[in-house]
């Protein structure tokens, strides 16, 4: 007698008819999640199986034993160590500097607008929409002339420049939510514009910084095109170039490639997990509102 069905709206909450939807949705989501995880699991499996096992078609079987040889190979390979160092040497400064430049731009567009600043802002954020190939050749020529080809500098510089539009957009949107009265109050207290930025606007925009660190770090760390164009020698290669290059070094090296892919993905995963909470918040506050 417990589940007598009452017409809608008249019954006590405990007598609500059974609602199947959450269960259905849960099952759908679970199936999708398995499908979604499959490729990633593939990488994971490949890294702990021998290339021979994979070649025999056993990549997708659940591993019965763990083979650590791929990781040992990778970690003992000095050029692979170099790939990681190079990528870090590119990603960290490029991330920090591009965000810094975005902060400076964004502050002016949000808090110190001038005649024509709206148009300038549009010009800058239009930069986001251009395929990078458009500026590839002249940049190649420019860096060649400056003897920057085959140096990490070339990649750092271009990532700083390519990051300016998105960093400017997000910072401007975020700074715009900081009330003008706060800036004015600080100025009357004797703060310079620089102090308003560093002591008021930035501390209030930490979610935006989290978003940008996540986006820029991920994008620069994972980038393939620019190092492909600007880097030629093996000592200067980034991790992503390295993965592709492994194909050349060993004839078939699935296991080693899998292990390196896994290691190469860890930094971006860590950054994302670290900033996840702020990332979502930052997206809600700064980005979704356009």
């Amino acid at each position: 007698m417990a589940d007598i069905q009452l017409p809608h709206g008249t019954g006590a909450p405990s007598a609500k008819p059974f609602n199947p939807w959450p269960v259905v949705i849960f099952i759908i989501l679970s199936i999708l999640a398995v499908l979604f995880l499959a490729p990633t699991v593939g990488v994971l499996f490949s890294s702990i199986k021998t290339t021979k096992e994979i070649a025999f078609g056993r990549l997708w079987d659940f591993p019965t034993s763990v083979y650590w040889g791929n990781f040992a190979d990778i970690l003992s390979n000095p050029s692979v160590q170099g790939y990681f160092v190079n990528t870090l040497l590119i990603t960290v400064p490029a991330t920090v500097i591009s965000i810094t430049l975005g902060i400076l731009n964004g502050y002016v567009f949000a808090k110190l607008p001038f005649r024509g600043s709206g148009i300038l802002f549009l010009v800058i954020i239009s930069g986001m929409f251009f395929p990078p190939q458009v500026i590839l050749i002249p940049l190649f020529r420019l860096f060649n002339g400056l003897h920057l080809i085959d140096t990490l500098w070339s990649v750092i510089f271009i990532h700083i420049a390519m990051g300016i539009p998105i960093c400017t957009l997000l910072m401007r949107n975020f700074f715009a939510t900081v009330p003008n009265a706060l800036r004015e109050a600080a100025i009357l207290e004797g703060a310079s514009e620089w102090q308003v930025l560093t002591k008021i606007a930035l501390p209030l925009s930490l979610p935006a910084l989290a978003v940008l660190v996540t986006l820029q770090f991920t994008w620069i760390w994972n980038d393939f095109l620019w190092p492909l164009i600007f880097i030629q020698s093996d000592e200067k290669r980034t991790v992503m170039l390295g993965i592709v290059n492994l194909k050349g070094q060993y004839s078939v090296a699935w296991g080693v490639q899998g292990a390196l892919s896994l290691l190469a993905s860890l930094p971006t995963l860590i950054v994302f997990l670290f900033f996840q909470k702020y990332f979502i918040k930052g997206m809600t506050m700064g980005a979704v509102k356009g």
Binding site: A181, L182, A185, L188, E189, G190, A191, P203, L204
Partner: peptide
């Protein structure tokens, strides 16, 4: 503005949300 030695109280109060009352007053 900072040289004029004036103080202003805003309609929105304009308190710095990330600072304590003590830090706000001593800013």
């Amino acid at each position: 503005p900072s040289k004029r030695q004036l103080a202003m109280v805003f309609q929105s109060y304009a308190l710095f949300p990330h600072m304590t009352v003590e830090q706000n007053i001593g800013f």
